[in-house]
């Protein structure tokens, strides 16, 4: 197997993992939008935006899945995944740093994680997204330039 093929398999695997993560979390939120809003209302800093965020977050997650699935926008999807996970991680870190009491807003399988474990979990997925971005850029660099000058 050539290294280019191997890189493509790695990128596809990461794309699937990120897609599954976002579909899982978006479905969980959309199934109980009222509960998601109630949880957002308990969160520090973002509670005034709860009614908008309850739609915006799952919508953004599903848009990212769409981008990851469409080959042409795959790289954009990877960047968007990295940014969304990064924003969430920074928010958790800020809450842990500046607030004494942190309400839990994690659901499903992720509810088994504490906030600190959640940061590690997000960090691992951010690392995966970054790896896919780098491999993707490397693949683009290695592509022969179009010689057609007509």
């Amino acid at each position: 197997m050539s290294s280019k093929n191997f890189n493509n398999y790695i990128i596809s695997a990461i794309k699937l993992l990120l897609g599954m993560l976002f579909i899982y979390t978006a479905t969980g939120k959309l199934m109980h939008l009222d509960i998601f809003q109630m949880r957002l209302e308990q969160m520090p800093y973002i509670s005034p935006l709860a009614s908008s965020l309850k739609w915006l977050v799952p919508f953004a997650e599903l848009v990212i899945v769409g981008l990851l699935l469409i080959g042409k926008y795959r790289a954009l999807g990877m960047y968007a995944s990295f940014i969304l996970l990064g924003l969430f991680t920074m928010y958790i870190m800020a809450v842990l740093r500046f607030n004494e009491h942190v309400p839990c807003s994690c659901g499903g399988v992720l509810s088994a994680l504490s906030w600190r474990d959640h940061i590690l979990f997000n960090g691992a997925f951010m690392l995966l997204a970054l790896t896919a971005i780098r491999l993707s850029r490397k693949g683009n660099k290695d592509k022969p330039q179009n010689q057609n000058t007509t």
Binding site: S12, G19, M20, L21, I23, T27, G28, I35, L69, G108
Partner: peptide, 27 residues
Amino acid sequence: VLKIVLPAFAIVMAVGLAFATEENNLP
């Protein structure tokens, strides 16, 4: 397989998992 079957399977699995763990998601 890579472009259609695998992503479709992944989507179905993620949605299924979300429904299966629904109870853990409730307060």
